[in-house]
Amino acid sequence: MSALNKSRQMCLGIAIGVMLCFFVYNVCLERKTNIQPRVVTFTKVSTNAVTETTPTNMQRRRRERTKFIYVMDILHKERIAALRRSCLRSKTRLNKMAVNSNALYSKTYKFAVCDIQKCGSSSWLQALMVMEKYFKPEDYFANRIVGQEVMNLGNQNLRISSFTSSSFNNWQKAMKIITVRHPFARIVSAYNDKMALNGPGSTPNFYKPMSHRISKKYREMRHNPAERNHENGGAATFEDFVNFLVKSPYPTDSHWIDFELSCHPCTFQYDVVVKFESLVSDISYLEEKLNITVKDRKVFFPNRNSRTQLDVVEKMFKSVPKNLALQLYYKYETDFDRFGYERPHWLD
Score class of each variant (00 low, 15 high):
residue 258 D to I: 00
residue 77 K to R: 10
residue 199 G to C: 05
residue 75 L to V: 10
residue 258 D to S: 11
residue 79 R to L: 09
residue 160 I to R: 00
residue 72 M to Y: 00
residue 97 M to V: 15
residue 251 P to H: 05
residue 134 Y to P: 11
residue 205 N to G: 09
residue 82 A to P: 04
residue 9 Q to V: 12
residue 40 V to E: 09
residue 65 R to D: 13
residue 296 D to W: 08
residue 323 N to T: 15
residue 222 R to F: 05
residue 115 D to Y: 08
residue 58 M to Q: 14
residue 242 V to W: 02
residue 210 M to R: 11
residue 191 Y to N: 04
residue 165 S to G: 09
residue 189 S to I: 07
residue 247 K to D: 11
residue 115 D to I: 06
residue 225 P to M: 03
residue 19 M to A: 07
residue 18 V to N: 04
residue 135 F to C: 04
residue 283 I to Q: 02
residue 251 P to C: 06
residue 329 Y to R: 01
residue 255 H to C: 05
residue 259 F to D: 03
residue 157 N to G: 01
residue 142 A to R: 15
residue 17 G to F: 10
residue 32 K to Q: 12
residue 336 F to S: 10
residue 153 L to C: 07
residue 180 V to M: 04
residue 209 P to C: 06
residue 91 K to R: 10
residue 282 D to H: 07
residue 78 E to G: 04
residue 331 K to T: 04
residue 301 F to P: 01
residue 68 F to G: 02
residue 150 V to S: 02
residue 267 T to R: 13
residue 230 H to P: 00
residue 57 N to C: 07
residue 203 T to S: 11
residue 231 E to S: 12
residue 299 V to F: 02
residue 216 K to F: 00
residue 176 K to Y: 00
residue 216 K to Q: 14
residue 217 K to C: 02
residue 275 K to D: 04
residue 149 E to P: 06
residue 259 F to K: 01
residue 293 T to A: 07
residue 239 E to H: 03
residue 206 F to Y: 10
residue 177 I to T: 02
residue 262 S to W: 03
residue 51 T to F: 13
residue 2 S to G: 09
residue 214 I to F: 01
residue 167 S to I: 09
residue 182 H to C: 05
residue 335 D to T: 03
residue 109 Y to K: 04
residue 315 K to V: 07
residue 288 E to K: 15
residue 309 Q to V: 02
residue 185 A to G: 06
residue 96 K to E: 15
residue 295 K to S: 14
residue 47 T to C: 06
residue 28 C to L: 15
residue 89 R to M: 09
residue 335 D to N: 06
residue 253 D to R: 01
residue 26 N to D: 13
residue 164 T to A: 06
residue 128 L to W: 03
residue 87 C to Q: 06
residue 49 A to E: 13
residue 58 M to A: 12
residue 170 N to Q: 09
residue 284 S to A: 15
residue 319 S to A: 11
residue 286 L to D: 04
residue 212 H to I: 13
residue 305 N to M: 12
residue 44 K to L: 12
residue 20 L to Y: 11
residue 12 L to S: 10
residue 221 M to F: 15
residue 246 V to I: 09
residue 338 R to S: 07
residue 344 P to T: 08
residue 315 K to Y: 12
residue 208 K to F: 09
residue 218 Y to R: 03
residue 108 T to L: 08
residue 85 R to D: 14
